[in-house]
Computed example of a mutant assay.
Amino acid sequence: MTYPLLRVEDLTIGFPYGTVVHGVSFDVHPGETMALVGESGCGKSITAFALMRLLPPGARIQGGHVIFDGVDLAAAAPHALRDIRGRSLSLILQEPMTSLNPVLPIGMQIAEVMRRHEGIGKAAARRRSVELLELVGVTDADRRYDDFPHHFSGGMRQRVMIAMAVACKPRLLIADEPTTALDVTIQAQVLELLDDLRRQLGMAVLLITHDLGVVAQWADRVTVMYAGRVVEQAPVRPFFATPQHPYARGLLDASVGHDGEAHYTTRRLNEIPGSIASAAGEAGCPFAPRCPDRIAACRRAPPVLTALGPDHNVACIVAAGTDHVAVDR
């Protein structure tokens, strides 16, 4: 049994107006790709920023632990975080044009990471940066080292972001919707590149997405979030074969080609009625107002994450029944 590289335990995040992430727990094991899935507004991205301690103004971690390689990042000192971020733990953001510095050549931005964390000289950093650009598929890399972000297409800018993220061979890469602004062809190329790098560098990937086709093809395990809570966790095959939470089933019913095959289905796509609940909202199960399986007990208290089988957990009193036990973190 391998121990998790990252263990998130009861992570709770709030703003002055209320709590938006409630007791989120999940593990990421060495070398795997774990997908964090859900609608926009469910708390995926802010959870990722909390792992890096890069929360927006006003937000703070209210409780829980983020254990990365034996260090609790939620309580780590700022100088310790600076040594970890960019070296053993890296982040790829959604929109590379707003993440890259528009007034610096892209090569300098890649080299800066290595000079900060590895202490190498300017010439060595340039050589390594060119090698990284070649690794991620940027042609004529030695010349393009001196180009600025606006000289690159969206797909090429995302490749530059990936080169920066893997420059120091991190143990865990957090990819927050890394293909959102890209067309389908470029999206596939970027995801294939990430998977190749994962194998070459032996790193784990936390992939944050709402695209179940991406999850089916590239992830090993899935954690589904709704309204700031984890509602289901499972390996990919059991998840797509027999999703247990009504929200997870709704996501699959509303998606095209969620089986990971390269075709479009002719079945009718069913929408989930209503809109996503506020993460700072009412008592009870947050999905209850939209749930076709709800019972009176669903309105009383949020369900706890319950083990249905090996590595398959669900937060639903109807799906769990009475024969299962709460997950002990």
Score class of each variant (00 low, 15 high):
135 L>N: 04
102 P>H: 07
118 E>H: 13
120 I>E: 05
114 M>C: 03
149 P>E: 08
94 Q>L: 02
130 V>D: 05
145 Y>L: 11
109 Q>N: 07
128 R>Q: 04
117 H>P: 10
140 D>F: 02
112 E>W: 14
135 L>M: 10
104 L>E: 11
136 V>A: 01
134 E>Y: 10
94 Q>A: 05
133 L>I: 02
150 H>C: 10
98 T>C: 00
106 I>F: 09
119 G>N: 14
99 S>N: 06
144 R>D: 13
123 A>D: 14
100 L>M: 07
106 I>L: 06
115 R>P: 11
97 M>T: 13
109 Q>T: 04
138 V>Y: 00
105 P>N: 08
94 Q>H: 04
117 H>L: 13
143 R>E: 14
118 E>I: 09
125 A>D: 01
102 P>M: 05
92 I>L: 11
98 T>I: 00
128 R>P: 02
95 E>K: 03
123 A>S: 13
100 L>W: 03
113 V>A: 11
138 V>W: 02
130 V>Y: 07
125 A>F: 04
134 E>K: 12
115 R>W: 06
112 E>N: 13
142 D>Y: 11
95 E>C: 04
119 G>C: 15
108 M>F: 14
129 S>C: 07
107 G>F: 07
128 R>C: 00
93 L>E: 01
109 Q>K: 06
136 V>P: 00
99 S>Y: 07
150 H>V: 09
140 D>V: 01
120 I>W: 04
110 I>D: 01
121 G>R: 02
93 L>P: 00
104 L>W: 12
92 I>K: 09
135 L>Y: 01
132 L>D: 03
99 S>Q: 03
132 L>G: 02
111 A>L: 12
100 L>T: 07
93 L>F: 12
102 P>V: 03
144 R>S: 10
95 E>Y: 08
96 P>T: 03
101 N>C: 07
119 G>D: 12
